[in-house]
Each structure stands twice: as C-alpha cells, then as structure tokens.
Design a protein around this nucleic acid. Structure first.
Length: 827
RNA sequence: GCCGGAGUGGUGGAACGGCAGACACGCAGGUCUUAGGAACCUGUGCCUUCGGGCGUGGGGGUUCGAGUCCCCCCUCCGGCACCA
C-alpha cells in the first residue's frame, strides 16, 4: 500500500473554508503597500469592483462580479504587481429609508447591519480585498468630502440652482435625473414619472459634453462597445446652426436651432415648445386664451403619452409672425408639444417638405409645404413623406446649383454668418445633472438659504453638515424633504450676515457619492481633503474596473465627469477614471431575471452551503465569457465540485519532495504544463476566464493520466504540473488551491506564490500534426517536425496514399503549403 | 426610425482566415463495488448503401481554404428616440 492510497478521497469543504479564512486573516497578505509603489519596488495595479449597495445579503450577481474581479486581482498579485484591491459600500439610498419607515428605525440601523452581513459573506467568499481601506459613503468622514466637492463645484460655477420642469416620481416622492427615467418610468420603482416645476440643484455636466464624448475614444478599446455607444448616444452631439428670425413688435429675435439650415428656403412656419416661457411671451392677446387652454392640456399628459411617436400632432397658432431671413416672408408662429423646451433653443423653423414631424404638423393644420431639395423621390406635398436625402436644391436662391447636403449646409451657414442672422453651432442631447433629492438618507447639500444674502455656502471648516437624528414616521415622504421638518436642524444663523436662515433640506443623488469613491480608496483616512493627491498619483487611475452595465449612462458617465472636473482643479493628473472596464452579464434562472415576485431567486448562501465557495465561484467563472448572461438552471455546480475534488486528489498523489528539480522530469508532461501556463496568461489577460479554466481542466486530466498510466507519481514533472494546477486554481478556487499547496509541502499562502517561470524550450513541440487537405477537405494527418521546410512537407503530403487516392489522378493545379500545420492540394 | 451587438450539438460554450464542436453538463454502455447519487474507462453533431456525404440563422460574394472577411435578408438582445 503506498501512502496516497490511504488518503481520503475527498476533503471537507466547510472545514477547509473555516481554516483558511483564519489563516488569511492572520497573514494579512492583501494589504496594498504605498511604499512598494512609491519606491518603484513594484509596479502598481488598481483593481476595482463596483461597490455594493447594502440591501440584504450578497446575491448571485455579486457572486459573479466578485469572482471575475478576484481572478484579475489575484493574477496581478501573482505576477508581481503591487495590487490595490479595496472594498466599500455605497450606503446612502432609498431602500434603507423605506425599511426605516416600515420598522420605525433609523436608516443607519438597517444600513450598517447589512454592511456587516455583506462583509462577512465577502470574507467567506474568499476575496482578496485590502480591508484596511474599507469605506462607507454614509459615514460623516466620507460625506464631509462629498459636500466639500459640491462646494468646490459651486465655486467653479458647476453646481447651480434653477427652476425648471423636472421629473417627479410620485411613488418615491422625489425628483429624478434624466438618466434615472427609463421609458417614462422611475428607474428604481417603475412608477410613471410626471413633471413638476421646481427649483433644484444641478451639476453643469453639459459644460463637459464635448470632452466626455472625445475622451471616449481613449478608452474605447478597453471598454465594452455597448457602453461606449450608449454614452455617445446619450451625449447625442449634433451639428447645425442657430438662425435668428425677426418677430414683429419684439426686440429680441426668435432664435432656432436646426441641423438643416440649407432648407431655410423651405421653412413655412415656426414652432415654439408649448410649455416654454417663450411661448407665453410671444402669444398675441387674441390667441392668449387658446394658448393657455392648450398649455394646460398638455401639462396633464404624462411622459409616457408624450413618448408615443405615432401620436397625432397638436398645437395652437400664437397669432404672431416671424420673418424668414433669406426670403423675407412672414411665417406664422405656432406652439406645440412636439418641440421640446429644453433642447436647442426650444423653438424650431418648420420645413415640412424635408422633416416628417413638420410635415405631419403642416398637414394637420393646413400649413404650406414647399420642396427645396429635389431628391428624385415623389414630392412630399403629395406623398406625405418628407425627403431627407441629398438632392438638387430648387427655389433656394444661391443654393440652386448645389447637389449635396454637406455643401448646401456649409454655403448657407456662411451666408447667415455674413448677414449676421445665424451661425454654425453644436448641440447636445445631454442635459445637466439634477442632483437634489427630497429624501432623508443621503448627503445633505451644504448650503444655507438666507432671506438677505441668498444662497450661502456652509464654510468649509464647518463640514460635514451631519444629518439630524430622524427615524420612523418622521421620514415619510411628503413631497418635501423630511429634513425640512427637523426644525432644530434646519434653522441656523446665516454664515454671512448672522441673521436667521434655513439649511437646504434636500440631499444629494447617491450617484454623487459614488462618483469619487474610487479616488478616496487611495487614502481612505485622509483628513485634509477628499483624498491625498500624492497617494492618488501613486495608484490612479483604476486599471481594471468590473461591474454591471446597467450603469452605462449613470455612474459610468458621472464618474467620468467628476474626474474631468477634478483634473481641471489640478487634484489629479488623468482625465479618465477607469482605464479598462469589464462588464459582466446577469445571473438569471430558467430564462428569467431572478425576482421575488417570480419566486425564482437562487439564494447565494444556500448554494455556498451546498457546493462550497470554490465550486460556486468556479461555476460562475467557467460558465461563459464574463460579459454573457448566466442561466443558473443550465449550470452544474456539482460538476465543478467534482472537478475540484479531482484536482485536490492530485496533490495527495505526488510523492516527490517539495523543491524537486523538474528539469529531470518527463518531457511530455512538462510540455503540457508549460503550454498551459503560457495559454493561461494570455487567456486571463484577455478576460477569457472560462477558457482558462478549461485549460486547467485539461492539465488536471493530463496529470491524472501521467500518474496512473504514464511517468508515475514520483516524477518531478508531475509535481511541477500539480503545483501549476494549484497556482492557476488559486485565481478561481482559493480554498482548494491553498489545501493543495499545503499538501504539496509549501508554506501558505498560494496567493503569495511566484507565477510559474516559463521555459520557452518547452513550448516547442517535438512533433506537430500537419493536416493535408484536397479541395479544402481533410484527407490525411502527418506527424512532422515543427520546423519542417515547406518543400519537404509538400513532398511528404503528395506521397501520402490517402492523398494520392483523393487526388485520383486529376491534374494538381496548385498546392498551398503552410508549414508545419497545413497543406491544401487544389485539383 | 437611427445606432450598436449576437445567432455554432440535447445544454453551457471552444475555435491567430487553416482539422468546427476544445472543456464541461447531460445521456448511454462498461470496470470496481454489498451498494453507487463515489471513482475510473469508453462512446455521444446529423445522414449513410460504411465508400463517404451534410453541417456554424437564410441567400450571395471574396479566397486554395470562411463559423471567422464583404453585401443583402431574417430573428433575438441592448442604447437613443417628436432631440429639429
């Protein structure tokens, strides 16, 4: 009986998890060392995963993103980088507040209890986080600096208040940013969003629209394409012109934005957004009553109704006319809800022949249609279909000889600029970021409203403005912030004049908190500013960000905006926060999103109890490419568990001693090992983790075979192979890998092991299979030397009996040789 | 409507323009077992007259060679959408 026959065939998963959690805690090996980076001893890598919101325990989605993230962080560590791999919580937000109302508690109770639950689950899950850098956005030490940043933004004119129609969620009783309204409904609760005229705080993200667009190019290669595209669409840059129209009896011209100034000769009327102040200013006395009626009507309509594109056009004649600057014609000015108040100038020139919406409107109200571009298609006046393509300009004065849009637009803009009636300009779809929220559990806005001084900043040395103690019923949404009711808190002396004043009672959108947390992680205890500029210089920017893509135009856009502003404030020296982004898919069950109402949720804790941490992690990593969705019903965690036991068993079979020289070992086994290491490197770096796992499985299979029916368990090549299995598995299944590493006679931890050193000589096979095709179909396989000459390979191939038979005496027209892999005979 | 992706066995998925289906799951058969829901081995795209033929959503094209590149179409997923 050899020693390994008496080993147990399996290991105790639960006991192993207990054991290593303790060892890892004592070793404290995942702490990121500023000095190692500052001294140039090791190159830095910053690996970051989107920090969670603390609602309940971790779920399957967290399990996936953390497993993927950990592969990268652990790989970097093994490759000798100094890795910053921090974790924290995005701990302000509505669910805590709603839970507090339900349970008559303080939101902090719910929040911090959940944080502890999640932190303990993360430890169990075996993640290589540097816990010394933990932060919570709801801690005063953190949100003090969120407030500081707000005031700095305000100082630069990037935070301002304005009254405007805003998105209002009647369920959550708060306003929402444009980005949080999805198909006319609240992103969070699904309630239909309505409009309210409110004075709210905004960040001037539109000032950065062009840079946010341009700099996407610098990350486009390392970000998922769909995020780059989504942001481009969201920013929505368009090129066009402003054109001024003189309105009788009004000093200021009526300015419009158009992308088709070249069709100005075809403009037959004007339309102003019905809900814009401009419409009220323009309307004639005779038409005022009709306009008021119309405006009140459309204000009642929800965004959902407005969004219906096949909705019939409606509007009202404002009873005034504007002068077309090129034709001198008087055109009627209308108001309609198909023109948006907050895009462009809130007014358009209507060219019904060449814009479908204008044509629909013209046909509804019997307004004239004048074709000025002949595209060869039927005249829109008859067909009812507007033409938008290139064509010959007609009845367009100096444009008449022109045959393409680009020249037409350029020519018209030049003329308008010469005459002072218009100019070329750029417009963006992006709107300013509405950041006030009428809720309690968020970062207070550090501004005081004084009846004499107006909006006054809370002095920097008085930050943070801490939340008052409110709980239960006091938190019930009433349409104004619960903070407004905390009289002791709200009523303060004006910092400027000392008179009675009131604090701003709104809190900030939680996306403000998460727009800079990645910077704070570089110096989480810093008390002199939001982060230590020198430390950030060491670690920033994030080298690899991992997270869900539901934030494509939310967090990922806001964080980019913050980065650019802070760059302009000389607080950091990069312009993009996340150099590379990996967007993981969603874990679903039986083809459907997991949800309480469907009752198809898979509980992560249950899965971990049943299969063990490693098996669940392995299953998630092996399931598919990281960015694809995973249907848990199609997965086999039991299979993963079986594989891990199989791999673990190898470590008990090795009979050579630790430190044996592998160079005396079996060459075939060594080649497999080294090829696996080589491929694993490339696969991890290109994020094809599922294939990396497959290669490790192949190595395990090959090693099993070598032990049972090959070079045997004593061969040092077998030890080398099993050690490589342990190191590679440590990226995905750290518990099993530690057990293996220990059984192989090494000191913990495998997380501190050296990445296997590749022997390039072992990557060269001693023979390769050359495929011989006739007419592109495989007819023979030849074992040849990897460095075989093309002529030799061709001779060998043409002599092969199967090849000769396939050619069947036909004339060989051409032979393609790609030594040493392939020959294709064309007959 | 505009802009992006993606369609490969029963399933998840592999495949620098060069052997389609790696690696798994599942299934079938076997070995060893008192037993097998353990371990190990074998087989597993479809058709076949056993020579071979056909196969990567459909149709064309480029190429000695196409899942991969190009064009058209279909389906599904995502983003934008009365944005002038």
């Amino acid at each position: 009986m050899s020693d390994h026959d008496t080993e147990p065939a399996t290991y105790d998963v639960a006991a192993t998890e207990q054991k290593w959690q303790q060892v890892w805690g004592e070793l404290d090996i995942f702490r990121a060392d500023d000095v190692a980076v500052a001294s140039g001893q090791r190159e830095k890598r910053y690996a970051l995963t989107m920090f969670p919101y603390p609602s309940g325990d971790l779920h399957m989605g967290h399990a996936e993103v953390f497993a993927l993230h950990d592969v990268i962080a652990r790989y970097w560590r093994l490759r000798g980088f100094e890795v910053l791999d921090p974790m924290g919580w995005d701990s302000f937000g509505l669910p805590a507040e709603n839970a507090a109302i339900r349970n008559n508690e303080h939101p902090a109770t719910y929040t911090y209890a959940n944080i502890e639950t999640q932190a303990s689950s993360m430890r169990r899950y075996g993640l290589a986080f540097d816990w010394s850098r933990r932060l919570h956005t709801s801690d005063p030490e953190y949100y003090r600096w969120t407030q500081w940043l707000f005031l700095k933004f305000r100082e630069r004119g990037l935070a301002y208040r304005k009254k405007s129609p805003v998105n209002w969620c009647p369920h959550d009783q708060t306003v929402l940013a444009n980005e949080q309204v999805v198909d006319g409904a609240c992103e969070r609760c699904g309630a239909v969003v309505t409009k309210r005229d409110l004075t709210q705080w905004y960040f001037k993200i539109t000032d950065y629209a062009q840079r946010l667009l341009d700099d996407l190019d610098t990350v486009a290669d390392a970000w998922p394409n769909r995020v780059v595209v989504a942001q481009r669409n969201w920013i929505g840059r368009s090129e066009g012109a402003h054109v001024d129209f003189v309105v009788e009896g009004r000093e200021e011209p009526l300015r419009v934005y158009t992308t088709r100034p070249d069709t100005l000769y075809g403009a037959t009327f004007m339309v102003v957004a019905a809900d814009a102040a401009l419409a009220g200013e323009l309307v004639s006395d005779a038409q005022r009553a009709a306009y008021d009626t119309y405006r009140d009507e459309i204000r009642k309509a929800s965004d959902i109704e407005r969004l219906a594109t096949d909705r019939p056009k409606s509007g009202v004649d404002l009873g005034v006319t504007a002068t077309n600057p090129v034709t001198g014609e008087q055109m009627p000015v209308w108001a309609s809800d198909y023109v948006l108040a907050d895009y462009g100038t809130g007014a358009i020139m209507a060219v019904p022949a060449h814009d479908q919406r204008d044509l629909d409107f013209a046909r509804t109200f019997g307004l004239p249609v004048r074709r000025v571009v002949d595209t060869g298609e039927e005249n829109p006046e008859e067909s009812g279909v507007a033409t938008t393509g290139d064509g010959v300009y007609v009845a367009s004065g100096p444009l008449d000889a022109i045959t393409d849009k680009a020249t037409g637009i350029r020519t018209m803009i030049e003329r308008l600029q010469d005459e002072g009636t218009g100019q070329g300009t750029v417009n963006f779809r992006l709107r300013d970021w509405l950041l006030s929220r009428q809720r309690f559990w968020g970062c207070p806005i550090p501004v005081i409203h004084c009846p004499t001084c107006g909006e006054v900043d809370v002095p920097l040395d008085q930050l943070p403005v801490e939340l008052p103690e409110l709980r239960g019923a006091d938190l019930k949404p009433k349409g104004v912030s619960p903070l407004a009711g905390a009289e002791d808190w709200v009523n303060v002396d004006c910092p400027s004049c000392g008179g009675p004043a009131r604090r701003d009672s709104d809190t900030m959108d939680t996306f403000v908190d998460s727009s800079w947390y990645h910077l704070r992680f570089t110096s989480p205890g810093h008390t002199e500013g939001p982060f230590d500029v020198a430390k950030l210089r060491l670690w920033g920017p994030v080298d690899q960000y991992v997270g869900g893509l539901e934030h494509a135009v939310l967090h990922l856009l806001y964080a980019r905006f913050f980065t650019k502003v802070l760059h302009d404030m000389d607080l950091l020296d990069f312009v993009e926060p996340f150099t590379a982004l990996l967007g993981q898919g969603v874990v679903i069950n039986n083809g459907k999103k997991m949800s309480k109402s469907l009752g198809n949720g898979v509980d992560l804790g249950d899965q971990l109890d049943t299969f063990g941490v490693d098996a669940v992690r392995l299953t998630l990593v092996f399931a598919s490419p990281p960015e694809d969705n995973i249907d848990w019903a199609d997965m086999s965690p039991a299979g993963s568990s079986k594989f891990l036991q199989r791999a673990w068993r190898l470590s008990g079979d090795v009979t050579s001693v630790a430190g044996s020289d592998p160079s005396t070992g079996d060459m075939a086994m060594r080649r497999v090992t080294h090829r696996t290491v080589h491929e694993a490197q490339e696969l991890v770096e290109s994020h094809r983790f599922n294939v990396m796992v497959a290669r490790v499985m192949e190595l395990v299979n090959a090693t099993r075979k070598a032990i049972d029916s090959g070079c045997g368990p004593a061969d040092p090549a077998v030890r080398e192979a099993v050690e490589v299995v342990a190191v590679l598995l440590s990226l995905v299944a750290p518990y099993t890998a530690e057990e293996m590493w220990e059984r192989l006679g090494h000191q913990p931890s495998v997380a501190q092991a050296d990445w296997p050193v590749l022997d390039p000589a072992l990557l060269i096979e001693d023979s390769v299979v050359a495929v011989v095709q006739v007419q592109g179909k495989v007819k023979a396989r030849l074992d040849v030397a990897p460095d075989i000459a093309e002529v030799d390979l061709e001779v060998l191939a043409m002599a092969d009996p199967d090849v000769v038979r396939a050619i069947d005496g036909r004339e060989v027209r051409k032979v393609v040789v790609r030594a040493p892999k392939l020959v294709n005979v064309v007959v």
